[in-house]
C-alpha cells in the first residue's frame, strides 16, 4: 500500500487501440490506479456514514412538535436537501484527508524527508471536473433556495390576496408587539383583544404585523418556522397557517437586554370552535 505512489503497477497488458478520446482513456486508466479506487471507496463509505445526518438533523428540529406549518415543512425539506447535497463533497474531502494520512506514504522524524513526492502541478481534467461539479451543486442550491423562498413568501405574505381588504378577509390579523421583555399579541378584528399567549386558529391564514416599543427583538415562532425582527419605528410583516394542534414556543431571537433569555411565551393552536370560544371568553367580539 505504501509504495503505489512511486512504483505504479503497470497495467497487465497494453490496451488495444481504440477510437475513444484520449481524455476518457486517461480517466479509465486513472480509475485503475489502486489509490484512486480506494479513495473513491472511502468516499462512498464516509458518505454512507454521514447519510443518517439527513434524518438526525430533522429529528433535532422536530423535538417539540415541528413542523406545525407548511412553512416549517418547506424549511425542513430545504435542510434535508442541503444535507444530502453536501454529503458527497464533504465525504470526498474527508476521504482524501484520511487517505493522505493512512494510505499514501508517511514519514516521521526530525529531518525533512529524503525523497520528494511527485510534482503534480495541476491536472486539467481534475480541475475541470471539480469546478463543474461544485458550480453545478452551488447553482442547484441557489435555484432550490430561490424557489423555496418564493414559496414560503407566498405561504406567509400571500395569505391575503391582493384584492381583499384585510378587515374582511378570512385571515386572522395579529399585531405583535415586542417590548423589553414581553410579547403582546393584539387581535384587531376582535375589538383589539390582547393576550400574552399567542392563540392561533387551526388551518387559517394568520397575518402578523410586528413592531417593537423599544429595542430590536425578533419574533420567532419556533415550530411554525416563522421569524421576523420586531423593530422600533417600523412594522414588519409576515404570516403563517398553523396546521397542527398543540402548544408551541415563541422565543425572542435577538438580544434585547437584560432579560432577553426570558422573553418567551407559548403558542396555542386551537380548532376554530375553541378559538372562537377563547375569543368570546376573553371579551373579544366574534367576527363575521
Amino acid at each position: 500500500m505504501s509504495t503505489d505512489t512511486l512504483n505504479p503497477q503497470t497495467p497487465e497488458e497494453p490496451e488495444a487501440p481504440t477510437n475513444r478520446p484520449p481524455s476518457m482513456r486517461r480517466v479509465t486508466l486513472w480509475l485503475r490506479r489502486p489509490y484512486a479506487r480506494r479513495v473513491l471507496i472511502l468516499t462512498v463509505v464516509i458518505g454512507f456514514l454521514l447519510l443518517p445526518l439527513c434524518w438526525l438533523i430533522l429529528a433535532g428540529m422536530n423535538q417539540t412538535g415541528a413542523p406545525a406549518s407548511e412553512i416549517m415543512k418547506d424549511i425542513e425539506q430545504t435542510v434535508f436537501v442541503f444535507t444530502l447535497v453536501s454529503i458527497p463533497i464533504t465525504a470526498f474531502v474527508f476521504a482524501v484527508l484520511l487517505y493522505s494520512l493512512l494510505g499514501w506514504r508517511r514519514v516521521t522524524g526530525d529531518e525533512p524527508p529524503m525523497q520528494d513526492s511527485p510534482a503534480i502541478r495541476t491536472n486539467t481534467i481534475g480541475v475541470i471536473l471539480w469546478t463543474a461539479t461544485s458550480s453545478i451543486l452551488a447553482m442547484f442550491l441557489v435555484v432550490w433556495g430561490l424557489i423555496e423562498l418564493a414559496q414560503i413568501t407566498a405561504n406567509s405574505y400571500g395569505s391575503i390576496s391582493a384584492n381583499e381588504q384585510p378587515g374582511q378577509s378570512k385571515s386572522e390579523i395579529i399585531n405583535v408587539t415586542g417590548q423589553q421583555w414581553v410579547w403582546t399579541f393584539e387581535y384587531p378584528q376582535h375589538d383589539g383583544l390582547t393576550s400574552d399567549v399567542l392563540y392561533l386558529p387551526l388551518d387559517r391564514p394568520v397575518y402578523f404585523n410586528v413592531t417593537s416599543k423599544d429595542v430590536i427583538h425578533s419574533f420567532w415562532a419556533v415550530e411554525l418556522g416563522v421569524k421576523i425582527d420586531a423593530n422600533p419605528g417600523a412594522i414588519t410583516q409576515t404570516g403563517v397557517t398553523a396546521n397542527k394542534l398543540g402548544t408551541f414556543n415563541v422565543r425572542c431571537a435577538e438580544l434585547c437586554g437584560m432579560y432577553h433569555a426570558y422573553m418567551q411565551t407559548e403558542i396555542r393552536v386551537l380548532e376554530q370552535d375553541a378559538f372562537d370560544s377563547w375569543v368570546r371568553e376573553s371579551g373579544g367580539k366574534k367576527t363575521s
Partner: peptide
Amino acid sequence: FMLSTEMISIPVGFLVLVAIGTLWRGTTWT
C-alpha cells in the same frame, strides 16, 4: 443576497481543491 452568498462557495471551493490536490499522493511528513 442569497445568490451572492452561495456563489462565494465556488471560489472557496477552489481553495479546497488546491488543498486536496496538494495532499494528493503526497508523502506526508507528519
